[in-house]
Nucleic acid binder design. Structure first.
Length: 338
DNA sequence: CTAGGGGTAAAT
DNA sequence: ATTTACCCCTAG
């Protein structure tokens, strides 16, 4: 029965994401008619968009409504024990919220989950802000409400959330303005598959959680040296071009819809963003003896800053004004546009 | 038109 | 054999 099955391309997914970011979920027809997206999505129907969004949401947040229903029907298998947490064959990634919270018996000892749950919280916060879709950002109460509604709420959740929000804002992952948080458009890349055996290096080698858009990507020492050598031998234009290329590839690969964000309301957010960035950058660059180069590049109307430090390459998406505000730490300033 | 239920080819 | 992810159907 004739459905050839046409898989969604990353471009289409990105367009859909951007469309939802722009018009909100549920406005499938609107998104489809938007000339900005219709060029990519002209093969798809509004229903296709809706279905695809459902699928992507399921992936993003663990269970969509559909999975919930299925799960309810499925849980006759292998006699679930009393208060057992079903760890479905879910791949070990984050997504899954630590189970066994509302255990009727145990209670009283809220032993904090180790690092793992903190990493997950990052993603949950991002998801919350994303799905709440409040144009000017979401405040802590709403974020907490979302997470509590979708998942479970540990007793000390509010406190943890507060700390985490603060940290993420300081790191530039979130932009805080007037008690509201927005997702910063920052990308850190140059990812590389790293050989586990090469990880045994100095003592202070930190491996960041994963490739999940974290601010910093730690590379092994040899890889850093290699990249630095490469950067040094390049002309500034070449280096910037290489960085821009990396940005483009990563963007496509991750299908991140980051373009739409800034169109919303730039001015005030940028000022806030500048502050967060400056703080983070100052912290990052403090006390480095090795020469640090910072390059500013522009790629497809988006602006990026590349830090080249002994700890690796930092790539951050940022508004032009930021760099102008804080020139002090820039040793090499290159404008490049593609 | 959208949300959600459901079917099923393709992937694992 | 089970899971995933497109596609279709239809009530509201």
């Amino acid at each position: 029965m004739g459905a050839p099955k046409q898989k969604w391309t990353p471009e289409e997914e990105a367009a859909l994401k951007a469309g939802v970011l722009k018009h909100g979920p549920g406005k499938w027809r609107t998104i489809l008619k938007d000339p900005q997206f219709s060029r990519v999505l002209y093969l798809r129907s509004n229903v296709d968009l809706k279905d695809k969004w459902r699928n992507m949401s399921v992936m993003a947040n663990g269970w969509g409504s559909r999975e919930r229903a299925r799960l309810a029907l499925k849980r006759t298998r292998h006699a679930p024990k009393f208060g057992e947490s079903y760890s479905t064959a879910s791949q070990s990634d984050e997504e899954m919220v630590d189970a066994r919270s509302l255990d009727a018996s145990g209670s009283s000892s809220p032993n904090d989950g180790p690092k793992r749950s903190m990493m997950r919280l990052d993603n949950l916060i991002m998801e919350a802000i994303n799905n709440l879709r409040e144009p000017s950002g979401s405040n802590k109460t709403n974020i907490a409400a979302y997470i509590e509604d979708q998942y479970w709420a540990p007793s000390n959740f509010k406190r943890i959330l507060s700390g985490k929000l603060k940290r993420m804002a300081a790191a530039g992952k979130l932009i805080k303005m007037k008690r509201k948080y927005r997702i910063a458009t920052t990308s850190a890349l140059f990812e590389r598959k790293q050989n586990p055996s090469t990880q045994i290096l100095e003592g202070r080698q930190r491996i960041s959680s994963r490739y999940d858009h974290d601010d910093v990507n730690y590379l092994t020492k040899s890889q850093i040296d290699l990249e630095l050598a490469k950067m040094r031998s390049m002309t500034p234009q070449e280096a910037a071009a290489a960085a821009a290329q990396a940005v483009a590839e990563a963007e496509a690969a991750m299908a991140e819809a980051e373009e739409a964000v800034r169109e919303a309301d730039a001015a005030e957010a940028d000022a806030e963003a500048a502050q967060a960035f400056a703080d983070a950058a100052r912290k990052t660059l403090k006390g480095r003896s090795t020469p640090t180069t910072v390059r500013y590049i522009s790629h497809k109307s988006q602006n990026f800053v590349v830090f080249n430090t002994k700890d690796g390459l930092f790539l951050r998406n940022f508004a032009e004004c930021v760099v102008k505000e804080d020139k002090s730490m820039i040793t090499s300033f290159v404008m490049y546009s593609t």
